[in-house]
Design a protein around this nucleic acid. Structure first.
Lengths: 135, 135
DNA sequence: TATCATACCGCAACTTATTGTCAATAGCCA
DNA sequence: TGGCTATTGACAATAAGTTGCGGTATGATA
């Protein structure tokens, strides 16, 4: 898989992939950087970004297309939706099944060539909900 | 409406609102800045950002929660979904009706207190589709 | 196993979008 | 009109991500 694209499995790339697969937190590049640094103290943030891009292009991981200011990554490459806490930005998976027929409705009504959709639920996680029950 | 929040209707605020309401392009702050500058050449970008925030908090406009690197604004405050071109990032409205019952499926299965959802279709706009029909 | 082309790395400088600071200005109520 | 203070313009400061460069090390080849 790496060969045909002239890519190499470097230590950095391997460690990033391994550590990401241990996490269920849909981390940002920066969070992955912090974790990976425990094993590779001299790794740079740029390397983390570059490798996350490569890995998501290879289909080994998924770059999440969510709203919010930073990109997040997910080792689970199956199509699934997420919930995001409006207050702390924590992201979790949802058990909602992919709405495969959603685009059908659009085929006749838009000039766009539809290739997919992003759906994200927003809400309050238990912690934030407790902290500030009022609005 | 402005009074109870101790807000003032300044020239800048009024012009930004007026110009945004002429546009169907879901512009970014920078695009609004460019347009408003024709009428108020000395306005600063910071002022545009601040006013867009104020106006969206007032409910006069809508700050779109889409993926992608920059925030976009919409004068239409009714709930509706958008299509975004993966290549040129143009955003258009869709005629898809709001999926009001979508969250119901989650109430029993998540610990989050769900308050809503964001749905965005992605595809190719006619221009970009023509330019590069392959892949 | 040694050689070698080049993919990849670490580092730092750079972009781009947005937010913060602060003195000066201008809405709006009395 | 006068005065309080929200707001502005100018610009510095962040934040997140990207890129250029010179050197290193992976993995193909002999």
């Amino acid at each position: 898989m790496l060969k045909e694209k002239n890519l190499r499995m470097t230590t950095q790339r391997k460690v990033i992939l391994e550590e990401l697969r241990k996490l269920d937190t849909h981390p940002s590049a920066d969070e992955i950087y912090e974790v990976v640094r425990h094993r590779l103290p001299r790794i740079s943030l740029g390397t983390v970004y570059r490798n996350l891009d490569v890995l998501s292009e290879l289909g080994e991981i998924q770059k999440l297309e969510l709203s919010g200011s930073l990109k997040r990554f997910d080792w689970d490459t199956n199509k699934h939706y997420h919930v995001r806490c409006i207050r702390c930005n924590r992201v979790e998976d949802t058990p909602v099944a992919p709405l495969n027929q959603l685009e059908d409705e659009l085929y006749d009504t838009t000039v766009f060539e539809i290739v997919g959709h992003n759906l994200e639920f927003i809400g309050l996680c238990p912690k934030c909900s407790k902290k500030d029950p009022g609005k």
